[in-house]
Design a binder for these strands. Sequence first.
DNA 1: CTGATGCATCGACGCGCGTCAATCTGTACA
DNA 2: TGTACAGATTGACGCGCGTCGATGCATCAG
Lengths: 113, 113
Amino acid sequence: MDITSCCTPVTDQALAPEEAEESANDFKVLADPVRLRLLSIIASVPEGEICACDLIDPIGRSQATVSHHLSVLTRAGLITREQRGKWAWFSIAPERAEFVRTILDRRPAPSLS
Amino acid sequence: MDITSCCTPVTDQALAPEEAEESANDFKVLADPVRLRLLSIIASVPEGEICACDLIDPIGRSQATVSHHLSVLTRAGLITREQRGKWAWFSIAPERAEFVRTILDRRPAPSLS
DNA sequence: CTGATGCATCGACGCGCGTCAATCTGTACA
DNA sequence: TGTACAGATTGACGCGCGTCGATGCATCAG
């Protein structure tokens, strides 16, 4: 099917209100610069994981704020948290690695704004 | 490169704050259920375009609100607006059709929440 | 036991944004 | 002209969320 042809529907049917609500909630998780930067830092460390204490300085926000965003990302299933002694270690959720890579590739909606 | 192997960085380097800001702004456009429903309705009409007057009822919001969201989507380059007499016709921006299809496929972040 | 440290949680604050009624602009038709 | 209608814009309101200081809860060292 040629989607570039005239008068061809891009999708087969409209989203139900509940579906739209869910999708919007998914995008809300990604609609914050601090969360995107946290994702990108975690995704780029060679060890594959990083301690929460090493995320506060590069982010430049309070410890409470960083902890809040890490909790949002964890609840969304994008990262995983592992307590190790008094330190919390975070890594990209393995089954979401490909998705996170796509997100951080800066190709979600090029030439917007 | 095997991204599923242990200790392999998912991305090569972290996002700059400005890049993160831009990406977050892109996602903010999609982080609203009304905008997603507008996109999906416009994308699913067989004619490939639809009058603004035919979008108010199915959305179930005021004319002002629908107009506002249409303006956000237009400014983001996701849809195009064409004035025809007293009516405004909207269609999915051709160069974004593939992107919009991906968005509406409900695969942005499956099994979230 | 005691003090120090890492991190989550709480309460409060301020800003941004989705929403709507009212208004304004422009087009169509008589 | 004058009326009717489509739709963008404005101003105001309320809620959600990002933010931070303060506090609580662990763990570890001495």
